[in-house]
Write a protein that binds this DNA or RNA. Structure first.
Length: 500
RNA sequence: GGGCCGUUAGCUCAGGUGGUAGAGCAGCGGACUUUUAAUCCGCGGGUCGGAGGUUCGAAUCCUCCACGGCUCACCA
């Protein structure tokens, strides 16, 4: 409103001039009796369909068949030739060329063509033929404008490069950069393949609360919101884990949830405040079985989504072929550093090793946290091909069952690929008394509230269970070769621009 | 939050050591009925992210601010 009422006195800003040109054409269309935003334009085939159907037909075959088509899409290029022109029309995925000729179009349609701009949506009816250069082309007989674009699109050749603009105005990124569109097509295929694989293996998809009275299942800082009618603070979930386990108690033996988690932490190339997690719980399974299952599932997904088990990653590649390597947390540290067994033997040795490696705030970290920290600075960034890291310290795994042979170690693994943590899984702790001790200890150590309702559920009996979480955004990064999580989330969180 | 780097026309980018901003695409006008980064002729378009400062003079040097990128921290 008011935005386009710019005075035509030569004082306009450049973008305003471009917009004013288009508005003038829009008004000219209306004067011709043409509605620039018609309510509908029925098409039975997309450009993609038509090109797929006729791409191999030669000129003679097309001359014979004279296929009549009716197509709609966005105008991406106009190559004028006086009383004729070539127009590229794109349905988002596929481009087709139109040939318009003044002597073949109704007078009004030619007038409409003259008022078309790059970026407008248009509809065309005509007959397919091949040009002198062999390109499949529509000889247009009727032309319609379907929606006038008032602002110019990014440049056709270089696309949209500005990373901020690509994230803020994702629609422009998708129009201008086919490889960005491809990322989100693959993302959709990955999610569909995961759902299908889990369904085929007897898992039931469920939806548990996004708003939790007590945040649990992880230890990140939560986002807080408030329910007015109940006068109740609620927390956007940091993990669905404790609710999914309640369902195992309830007798759903295989459940999964694939949806958003929210963590009020920093933003990085691997962290977005809201991110997508697959969590699944499997009664009578343990972490060993989950490793087998994870290999099978993720290789099947890779085959289905990208058709390969070799993924380009940075300068190199990731090889997903099975079996995947397994390494204990301690062995991983030893393998990827010059530390020796003696450096991990006791607290004092670990502190000294950590100091040498530049770990900060050593004193305030628990033994387990310190070991995990040593892993993170030595091995994690170098685990490129998929590697299961097993045998985690109990004190950083409050929901995992202890190993029968060593009560200070739990039956847990994390999966690392491309130097990133991709999955976290364990044989679930189902002893309610032990679970209570662990949660109370955690609450004592780092604050927070014990989820009594969860313990109440456990006290009714949860079968032996394996559970796992897989970070979907990172999985998409791996399968699309993207090094930033912002490239695989359609609308990543950005600071609003001033005045917005 | 810290460090480093960046922000120039609608888009993609140039603009040694300070001398008052350019190109391609897009746009506008003209020619052109098989082109495809169409071609040819002509034209318009900039508070150089913002605000201060240094200087005779700032896109360029300094300070602060905004936004972004990378990175560190936070994230068991």
């Amino acid at each position: 409103m008011g935005r386009f009422d710019v005075p035509d006195d030569g004082t306009q800003q450049p973008l305003e001039q471009l917009i004013a040109n288009r508005v003038a054409k829009l008004e000219a269309l209306r004067e011709l009796g043409v509605e620039p935003y018609p309510a509908r334009y029925r098409v039975e085939t997309s450009i993609t369909d038509v090109v797929a159907r006729w791409k191999d037909a030669d000129a003679a075959a097309l001359e014979e068949a004279r296929p009549a088509v009716r197509l709609a899409g966005r105008v991406r290029a106009i190559r004028g030739h006086g009383k004729a022109a070539f127009v590229d029309l794109n349905d988002g995925a596929t481009r087709i060329q139109l040939h318009v000729r003044k002597d073949r179009l109704p007078e009004n349609d030619w007038a409409v063509f003259k008022l078309l701009d790059l970026g407008d949506f248009a509809g065309a009816e005509g007959v397919l033929f091949r040009t002198r250069t062999g390109e499949l082309t529509v000889a247009v007989e009727r032309l319609s404008v379907l929606a006038k674009a008032l602002r110019p699109l990014p440049e056709k050749y270089h696309g949209l490069a500005d990373r901020e603009a690509r994230a803020r105005q994702r629609y422009l990124d998708l129009v201008a950069n086919p490889e960005s569109r491809r990322v989100f097509e693959i993302r959709s295929r990955i999610v569909a393949a995961l759902r299908r694989f889990l369904g085929e293996h007897g898992f039931l998809e469920v939806e548990t609360p996004m708003m939790h009275p007590i945040p649990g299942g992880a230890t990140a800082r939560p986002f807080v919101t408030h329910h007015n009618a109940l006068d109740l603070d609620l927390y956007l979930r940091i993990a669905p884990e404790l609710y999914l386990k309640r369902l195992i108690v309830g007798g759903f033996e295989r459940v999964f949830e694939l949806n958003r988690n929210f963590r009020n932490e920093g933003i990085s190339t691997r962290h977005n405040p809201e991110f997508t997690m697959l969590e699944f719980y499997w009664a009578y399974a343990d972490y060993e079985l989950l490793m087998e299952f994870t290999e099978a599932m993720l290789t099947a997904v890779a085959e289905e989504a990208v058709g390969s088990l070799t993924l380009p990653w940075g300068e190199g590649t990731i090889d997903l072929s099975r079996p995947w390597r397994r390494l204990t947390l301690r062995d991983a540290i030893l393998a990827y550093s010059d530390l020796e067994e003696a450096d991990l033997a006791d607290r004092a040795a670990m502190e000294s090793a950590a100091r040498r490696l530049g770990v900060e705030r050593i004193e305030e970290r628990s033994d387990g946290k310190l070991l995990a920290e040593l892993f993170e600075v030595t091995a994690e960034p170098r685990l490129i091909d998929p590697t299961f890291i097993i045998d985690f310290p109990r004190d950083i795994s409050p929901l995992a069952k202890s190993s029968p042979s060593d009560p200070d170690t739990v039956e847990r693994f994390e999966l690392f690929v491309g130097g990133m943590e991709l999955a976290n899984a364990y044989t679930e702790l189902n002893d309610p008394a032990e679970q209570r001790r662990r949660l109370e200890e955690q609450a004592r150590r780092s604050g927070g509230t014990v989820d009594e309702d969860f313990l109440l559920a456990l006290e009714h009996g949860m079968p032996p269970t394996g559970g796992e979480g897989i970070g979907i955004d990172r999985l998409v990064m791996l399968m699309t070769g993207r090094q930033s999580i912002r490239d695989v989330i359609l609308f990543p969180l950005l600071r609003p621009r001033e005045g917005e």
